[in-house]
Design a protein around this nucleic acid. Structure first.
Lengths: 117, 117
DNA sequence: GGTAGTGTATCGTACATGGTACACAATTGT
DNA sequence: ACAATTGTGTACCATGTACGATACACTACC
């Protein structure tokens, strides 16, 4: 269903094309898991790994951790913590932005970031 | 650490003060769990229950589900789903609002809701 | 043609999650 | 007084999570 595994495999093999340090075994070793486990993950034979492992994998493959976590069906725990501190406020905001087009959301981001308004 | 249990107990006993249908047993029955389990939850002898059970409990005690979920250390799965659909965008927005005062966040909510800007 | 590296199959496992079932003692209602 | 109701202690359990260990077959290379 969630093509987390195939996304990882595609990205890894793309990197491997001009750097053979991106073999499954070597990547597995660098992110600190057994090759057999990473193999199962890439084939979808195992569910996506824990948040920590997913983030290490994303960094290793030069991908956005939040995107990889999303593919893994998760939301970064630091975001969750922010939400949990003011649940009503953030719940309302996020639900309000559910249907908003990307551009509108990004405009909100810019406004908040620049602070001038 | 998280006083989820004691919050539940306080709220339930407050309601029980003028409605004896809010005994632990009866509430447990209405939300579909065993009394012994709810007892453990209220005393902190068991971790907060699943999302579904937490929401039923919140509704039964006339509390905001998002707040109860937050106390339980969780974030509503429908919010997570919204974030997962556009991870970069929402991750950036939420982190940007991390330190913003309530008033600023609420102003954003209003602006988005009213749409006129 | 050995050996070094590649991916994979199979099995096991330690711990967390989300509860149920039952018996019991204390309290309450009538 | 006694029946019902209350909260709780103890034991148990099925499923899911997040991996590790080992052995194997294939290819690549020199």
């Amino acid at each position: 269903m969630s093509h987390f595994g195939t996304t990882v495999r595609r990205k890894r093999e793309a990197l491997r094309a001009d750097d053979r340090r991106f073999s499954l075994r070597q990547v597995a070793h660098r992110i600190g898991v057994e090759p057999a486990y990473l193999s199962k993950i890439e084939r979808g034979a195992a569910a996506p790994p824990s948040e920590a492992t997913t983030v290490r994998l994303a960094r290793e493959l030069d991908e956005d951790p939040d995107v990889f976590l999303a593919l893994a069906g998760k939301v970064s725990s630091d975001l969750q913590e922010i939400i949990r501190k003011r649940p009503r406020l953030f719940a309302q905001l996020i639900r309000e932005l559910k249907e908003a087009p990307d551009e509108a959301v990004f405009r909100v981001v810019r406004v908040v970031r620049d602070g001038d308004w």
